[in-house]
Amino acid sequence: MADLSAKDIERATFVFEIYDFVGDGTIDAVNLGDCLRALNQNPTLAIIEKLGGTKKKNEKKLKLDEFLPIYSQVKKDKDQGTFEDFLEALKLYDKEENGTMMSAELSNMFLALGEKLTDAETEELLKDCMEPEDDDGFTPYEPFLKKLMA
């Protein structure tokens, strides 16, 4: 936790207090991932579970002094991927090397790869972030990725 700056601790405390719905100085471990994402981190569900997050409400409570080391550990983790990493991955689907990919392939990635999203989650994500597709079903992927990561 020594690697957290005073500003990091201030921001983490603020987020923690927002998720302390009862006002007793604790957060429900089911909200651990939401807290970390509110702090601009991107942990996977597996990492959240490994760090003490739960899938059910009221199974476990975390105090601020337990949360800060978790935040510190996630903040140090470099395996979250950067914009450039994701851009390179999407370029694999750019058959014509013109900055576009099939919208259907983009949708399929969210439904089938990694931590799979539901149909409804995928539909909402694409609606919010994807540019209109052209007549052939292609969409530019760089603006999509920028909106997704914002």
Rank of each mutant, 00 (worst) to 15 (best):
T13P: 03
T13V: 10
F86H: 11
K127V: 14
E49Q: 08
F83D: 01
K56H: 09
L45S: 02
L126P: 06
M130R: 01
L113N: 03
C129Q: 06
S103Q: 01
T100S: 08
N40Q: 12
V15A: 06
L36Q: 03
S5N: 05
S103D: 00
D128S: 04
Q41A: 04
G33W: 09
K56M: 11
M109I: 15
G137I: 14
N42H: 11
E142F: 04
L45Y: 09
K76M: 09
V30C: 01
N42G: 00
D65K: 06
D77I: 14
E66D: 12
M149V: 13
M1T: 14
Y19N: 00
N58K: 13
L90Q: 06
E84C: 00
T118G: 03
L32N: 04
N108Y: 15
L87S: 07
R37T: 10
A112S: 15
K63A: 08
A29C: 13
Y19G: 02
P43F: 08
G137K: 02
D24Y: 07
T44A: 03
K56R: 12
G52E: 09
D136Q: 09
V74T: 13
G114P: 15
E96Q: 11
L36D: 03
T82W: 02
M149F: 13
I18S: 00
P69A: 05
E96I: 04
E96A: 07
L111H: 05
M130D: 02
C35W: 08
M109G: 00
A6P: 07
D136C: 02
L125Y: 07
R37P: 08
T82S: 10
T122L: 06
D65V: 15
G33L: 05
P143Y: 04
I47D: 01
S72K: 05
D136L: 01
T82A: 02
L90K: 01
